[in-house]
Design a protein around this nucleic acid. Sequence first.
DNA 1: CCACTTTTTGACCAATTGGTAAAGACACGA
DNA 2: TCGTGTCTTTACCAATTGGTCAAAAAGTGG
Lengths: 211, 211
Amino acid sequence: MPDGPPKKPSRIQQRNRHLILDAALDVFSAHGYRGATLDQIAEAAGLSKPNILYYFSGKEEIHVTLLNQLMETWLDPLVEMDAMGDPMTELLAYVHRKLDMARDLPRESRLFAGEILQGAPRMHPHLVSDLKPLFDEKCAVIQGWVEEGKLAPVDPHHLIFSIWSTTQHYADFDAQVQVLSSDDPLEGARRYIDTLFRRMLSIPTSTSQTQ
Amino acid sequence: MPDGPPKKPSRIQQRNRHLILDAALDVFSAHGYRGATLDQIAEAAGLSKPNILYYFSGKEEIHVTLLNQLMETWLDPLVEMDAMGDPMTELLAYVHRKLDMARDLPRESRLFAGEILQGAPRMHPHLVSDLKPLFDEKCAVIQGWVEEGKLAPVDPHHLIFSIWSTTQHYADFDAQVQVLSSDDPLEGARRYIDTLFRRMLSIPTSTSQTQ
DNA sequence: CCACTTTTTGACCAATTGGTAAAGACACGA
DNA sequence: TCGTGTCTTTACCAATTGGTCAAAAAGTGG
């Protein structure tokens, strides 16, 4: 059963789909799935509502499309962590890449957070098929580093959880961070988080540690 | 202009208001403010929709009531951190109290997270009037501990942010944590987070540290 | 048992919202 | 210029949803 000619998308299609997805990212990340309306997305995109539905079959397809695109971007920093590199260097570089993402892609971070917060109704399959294998693989890498004595003893699973949570916090809880910070928090965050994981993962130099 | 007799709430009023708020906490934390419907809340509470509106003037009042109640509970662990106690003990006890809350009150954690994620539209005043002063006060306490040499040098603001994010992560991102964990993650989390902040805050024993 | 207050319900409404149908505007190659 | 397929809009639903209202039903004190 042939699929028919795939038909490359026209210039206009590319432009409008991109317009819609960008507008939808704004709206979904600000109000959540249920809180977002097609009218809001249409207005933000500068198109009419039926026109939106000419490019996407419905609200859900827009949301799913965003989530799919996001997954790739989201996993990339972890993918880049190299088992062959220096453990401390690789892990700290990963932390900094995640912090860069919280700074540069806060809408994406909030979209992801909102989806997970509500039980990942649309993303659960992706978590199992894409995230889980990568997560397991990188946990094994870290475990290897620990066993080689290149890192202080640490549970890789929770280490990664804490990297995610501390970095994404600055995007997801921005409203709170803004209230509590006088100057731009991101610079301080960078120094603090670097120190946090450096102290967590450093092998004690010498002397006996208490207990 | 007298306020009239305050009229203590009847037994029935207390019971039904409590039923409604508990049901609303379920629904709001699972679907967010916009995603929740009065019908869902009514069904979860075992009451009819008009009956709900007999006890609360509208959807928003229910939400605001929950948020107000929550604020007290939420700040309590931080309030209990005692400037007179031993710094490391106090901070680690605070971390463990926060982790207890993520375990025992996940609905509350998600309600709070959802509100902040969407820019704290209803809670912003509370953040400024309640959270900010407490936060500043406790930051000063921690700063004092650092200056006394009782803790390793650390930015108190980001330290608290990282305590919040690492602990609440287990409630807010539970859907993700569940996918990635084989056994119950909370026990491992407790050990990991304890170690994380212990290493972060410990004064180096002796010897020179590299760099 | 009776008056009186509190609680509960069924019927209803206006606004919002996701989505459709069909006609019209537009682009573009022959 | 014309015709054909692409894109856009206008007008319109049906369902959902927050909320109202008046009347019925339960409590409650005397």
